[in-house]
Nucleic acid binder design. Structure first.
Lengths: 158, 158
DNA sequence: ATACATGCAAACATTTTGCTTTGGC
DNA sequence: GCCAAAGCAAAATGTTTGCATGTAT
């Protein structure tokens, strides 16, 4: 349950430094059989630095992509990273697919303006964790995770 | 909170008959300035009959589309129906956009298999309603609604 | 040395639009 | 009769793949 005197928007108080998160991700990528290339590091760094989900265009056109890697390269990296559970795919109402880092001790829900498309990470205690475990048991589905987004009109667009 | 002795899957016990839902939707469409065409009725009927979200291809190739309406026609109807709050768009992890009827007294959450793509409506009491109202107040966003999906591997695919 | 990663270009899937004709009100 | 809706076809958008070449291990 959310307390009204707390901000509902993201406070960006990461538990781990960007460097730690990167090292961990690179380690997991290596274990997953990926080679340590410039493009891989760039993509991870960009995702870690972003406080929003990013899509393929965002990443492949990012200033942070020092290697200047091709769209196809970035695409293939994203697929591999997702398969290995290092990043997560999100289906926001945009035509494109969004990605975020998947950090163990953090879960993100989003608040999205249907007018301007602004995506805001919510700093809330997610209320569906218990439910998720129940559904896992009751349905026989394995490795459950969830996606929760709130849509509405932001103050500017309303 | 879900009780373990209850099924977690949809029981299809609609509170209103399909005809009632259709009449209500047509009425709201009319109020929204839409003309009562064959294609409109077909699209609504198809959505009402479906116990799953449907995408543009599903609808425009459906047997139920007696009028044989064009893809573009169906597309434009879907846009108009969504603008008027009669149907809802969903961003499932598929490449396409899905739609469902938006019924006042029903809220749908989904369980989706990341292996075979099967979409299952969940018959649960959604735990985020209260949170939604809090976020609405705290964020200044208007007309909030949410989308909640659980992803995982179904028994067959696991 | 080998297998994986990359770049480029082309193929795909799906959505979206322009324009003319049709049809509901 | 007027304006919205439909039909057809083409454009736009974003993703995905094939293949020759480069590069990490």
């Amino acid at each position: 349950m959310l307390h009204h005197h707390h901000s509902v928007t993201c406070r960006h108080h990461d538990k781990h430094s960007a460097q730690e998160v990167l090292d961990e991700a690179l380690h997991r990528a290596k274990d997953g059989g990926l080679r340590r290339t410039r493009a891989l590091e760039d993509v991870l760094r960009i995702l870690i630095a972003s406080h929003q989900p990013l899509n393929l265009a965002d990443i492949s056109e990012s200033k942070g992509l020092k290697s200047g890697a091709d769209r196809a390269t970035v695409y293939r990296l994203l697929v591999k990273l997702e398969e290995r559970g290092i990043i997560r795919r999100l289906g926001l109402h945009d035509r494109s697919t969004y990605y975020t880092m998947l950090e163990h001790d953090r879960h993100d829900d989003y608040l999205i303006c249907t007018g301007c498309g602004r995506i805001q990470r919510l700093d809330i205690q997610c209320p569906v964790e218990a439910l998720e475990r129940d559904i896992e048991k009751a349905s026989g589905f394995k490795k459950l995770h969830h996606e929760l987004e709130f849509y509405g009109l932001c103050p500017k667009c309303a």
